[in-house]
Amino acid sequence: MHNFVYNGNPGRVIFGQGTISRLREEAERLGIQRLLVLATPEQADQAAAIAQKLGDRSVGLFSKAKMHTPTEVTAEAMEVVTETRADGLLAIGGGSTIGLGKAIAFRTDLPQIVVPTTYAGSEATPILGETENGRKVTKSAPSILPEVIIYDVDLTMTLPFTMSVTSGMNAIAHAVEALYARETNPVTCLMAEEGTSAIAGGLPVLQQDATSVSARSDVLYGAWLCGVCLGSVGMALHHKLCHTLGGMFDLPHAQLHTAVLPHVVAYNRAATPDAMARVNRALGSTEPARGLYELSSRLGATMALKDLGMREDGIDAALDQALSNPYWNPRPLHRQPLRELLTHAFHGIAPL
């Protein structure tokens, strides 16, 4: 076995059905007296209902979280933190809300409780991606990592199937890149393969029966494992491209990751044979890039960036930005094959 380093991030995970009932107990355990609840506008009512479980420990609801964590929204939320004298944060929702909580915690070091309602997986990472002036920048720090994650399968039962698909594929992207990251290690690889397998197995079941508790549980479990992978090792080309495209064109986060992932896997395939073998085992496929593309397509995901709102004349501008400060990648980055990658993703063409 090769030498390796594994860093396990701290954090408490509560997983199951009905676990939201332990919310007040967890706030008490952390010594939080004044929790500010965070949500998107679409989930404001759900967040308000859950906040009632806190009683007088809930001091307000900020429901303006937005995709890609724009800094101007964070600035507005920081004013509410000051006004309410909050000593803790409760993020209820998906990646947008979780990102806002992380952004506030990064600035204040307030403790966070996260209640995911999608399969984003970002709740398990000490990584924050913020957007300012059309550029998305990531940072990592211990204060960004939530102290407690409450996974309640019941809260995912009404997640629309289309969102379940792209949210789950977004989580798989974390695991796939963890398999060939520079800091990859045997422990992370085990979680990455298991997480990918759980999601890839659960989503087709949900396509037939969106109310399947066991499938919802499998996908949520897989999302947690994939998030741990993202938080334990660095990422590579896929995440750099998606951060660039998302920040520049305000493309929907999970759908963007779903569409781009098969093409990046095709780009890196020859340079990472061991990782690709794990992806094939997890998917039950014989070719990883095609396996990811066909799985997403069968589940009804949009696979063309043009259908997500990207302009074709933005391909070269995106490459300029991505290559100006690239992430490490197992295969060297060359402009022409990367341009072909983005062109295929733009049109939704199956990877070669």
Rank of each mutant, 00 (worst) to 15 (best):
A282I: 00
V165I: 15
H243D: 04
C189F: 03
A178Y: 03
T244H: 03
M276W: 01
T258C: 08
T196D: 10
D250H: 11
E193W: 13
V265R: 09
A254Y: 01
L179V: 04
A271H: 08
A259E: 15
A275H: 00
S214C: 09
W224V: 12
L179C: 02
G195Y: 01
A210I: 12
V279T: 14
F249V: 00
G227K: 14
C229F: 00
D250G: 05
T166E: 09
L251M: 14
P273S: 12
P262C: 09
R278D: 14
G201K: 12
H253Q: 14
N185F: 12
H174R: 02
Y180W: 11
P186R: 09
G195L: 04
A173Q: 07
S212T: 04
D218T: 13
Q255R: 10
G247C: 00
P273C: 06
G234E: 05
V260S: 15
V165G: 06
L225D: 04
A271N: 11
C226W: 04
A236M: 12
R216E: 01
Y221C: 12
Y267M: 15
A210Y: 08
G246T: 13
Y180T: 00
T196E: 06
H253A: 09
L203C: 05
A282G: 00
L245T: 10
S232D: 00
D209I: 14
G247F: 02
R269C: 04
C242A: 03
Q207C: 15
I172T: 09
A223K: 06
T188C: 11
H243K: 11
V176R: 00
T258A: 09
Y180K: 01
L237G: 10
E194M: 13
V260R: 02
P186T: 15
P262K: 07
T272K: 00
A171Y: 05
R182V: 04
L245Q: 06
E194D: 11
M235L: 06
T196W: 07
A200T: 15
L251P: 09
M169V: 07
V279R: 11
V219A: 11
G202Q: 10
Q207E: 11
A200D: 06
A178T: 06
S217A: 10
S217E: 15
E193I: 02
M191Y: 04
L206K: 14
C242L: 07
G227C: 11
L190R: 08
F249H: 01
T184A: 15
L261Y: 02
M169N: 12
A266S: 09
V176F: 02
T211I: 07
C189T: 10
S164P: 01
T211N: 14
A210V: 10
M235K: 06
A236S: 06
H253F: 07
A210L: 07
H238W: 02
D209G: 13
G195H: 02
L220T: 14
T272Y: 01
Q208E: 15
P186A: 11
